[in-house]
């Protein structure tokens, strides 16, 4: 299955889950009254015995998934990012974290692009909350093709995972043959003037920005950090050492997500100017996704500006 035109990242997950249903009898799926939006509906229809509708009970869904994992199953528990990571944070900490059960928490509607639903439904902090839990792998694929591969990869991996998938149609920037290995960042574009680390829906935006920057004589190394944890520190260090200036871009708070993860590594091992593009410690609001992205500075223009600042700081004390 290959996606060629813009589509929701979640659609790659939904397709892959059906494939897993065919190939792996241990895979089961749960949802909390969100079968359609999380894209588990097709799995539910094809494999009804292995699908558990938990109702509007996210905490119970995580605990039930834990019990299924204890019984040898590979449960994919699905809901919206804000509910899976914030509302159900305690059972996620206990069961995916401390108990290290083999549960895959896959959440759609991460980030700001829930749009008109407003601030209560927009998850700017899901990656940070999940990154704080010891032993949890945190993944955010950049398009539907990558989501497809990531879903197969996390099913194969024996351990707890949080995966964020987006709702709205976003460009396809990877191909069926593009590599995907959990924990290994992918260099999508080579360059030696600026290291541009990006994740999820901001990967296509970063590639756009890189084109603009190239026209201005700044060659970006665009690194898709699809696995936020464990972070591919080598890729971060290699790109930073080669380029000497860094921009991070994420549809997420600048606190605790990709920007923080990169800065945590660099401040210890390879200090360099870092500019972070993300949501600046605030809640969102209702609006169309593109309006919100624009207001909160999650655009290619914002990345270009950040890149110019980072490059201008090269060689300075920071």
């Amino acid at each position: 299955m290959t996606f060629t035109s813009p589509t929701g990242i979640r659609n790659g997950f939904g397709q892959a889950l059906v494939e897993l249903g065919r190939t792996n009898p241990d895979v089961v799926a749960l949802t909390a009254d969100l079968a359609d939006p999380t894209r588990v509906r097709r799995f539910a229809e094809k494999f009804p015995d292995r699908f558990f509708q938990m109702g509007i009970s996210e905490n119970d869904m995580i605990g039930t998934a834990a019990g299924l994992a204890l019984g040898g199953k590979i449960p994919f528990a699905t809901t919206f990012a804000i509910f899976g990571t914030s509302l159900a944070n305690q059972p996620v900490r206990l069961h995916l974290g401390y108990n290290h059960f083999n549960v895959k928490l896959v959440c759609s509607h991460g980030g700001v692009t829930v749009g008109p639903d407003g601030a209560t439904h927009q998850a700017f902090e899901d990656l940070a909350l999940m990154r704080l839990i010891p032993g949890l792998t945190v993944v955010a694929p950049c398009d539907a093709n990558e989501a497809y591969k990531a879903t197969l990869a996390i099913a194969e991996y024996d351990g707890p995972v949080y995966m964020r998938v987006g709702r709205i149609d976003t460009p396809i920037v990877t191909a069926a043959e593009s590599p995907f290995t959990l924990g290994k960042a992918n260099v999508l574009r080579d360059g030696d003037d600026l290291a541009l680390f990006c994740v999820g829906s901001m990967v296509p935006t970063s590639l756009e920005a890189a084109d603009v920057l190239a026209d201005r004589g700044i060659n970006c190394r665009v690194v898709n950090v699809h696995t936020l944890k464990p972070l591919d520190e080598k890729a971060v260090l290699d790109a930073t050492r080669a380029c000497g200036a860094v921009v991070t871009a994420e549809e997420h708070s600048v606190l605790g997500g990709l920007g923080s993860a990169v800065a945590e590594v660099l401040c210890c091992l390879a200090p360099a100017p870092v500019e972070m593009v993300g949501v600046n410690d605030t809640f969102g609001e209702s609006g169309e996704p593109d309006e919100i992205l624009s207001k909160y500075g999650l655009t290619s223009e914002a990345i270009v500006d950040a890149a110019l600042r980072a490059v201008s700081r090269k060689g300075s004390a920071g």
């Binding site: 558990f52 995580i62 605990g63 039930t64 834990a66 019990g67 204890l70 305690q90 059972p91 206990l94």
Partner: peptide
């Protein structure tokens, strides 16, 4: 399954019964 935070046990018991 580790326990301490109250209320968590029955969900796990249910999940194991389903498995």
């Amino acid at each position: 399954s580790s326990s301490g935070p109250l209320g968590q046990g029955l969900s796990v018991a249910n999940g194991l019964a389903l498995a």
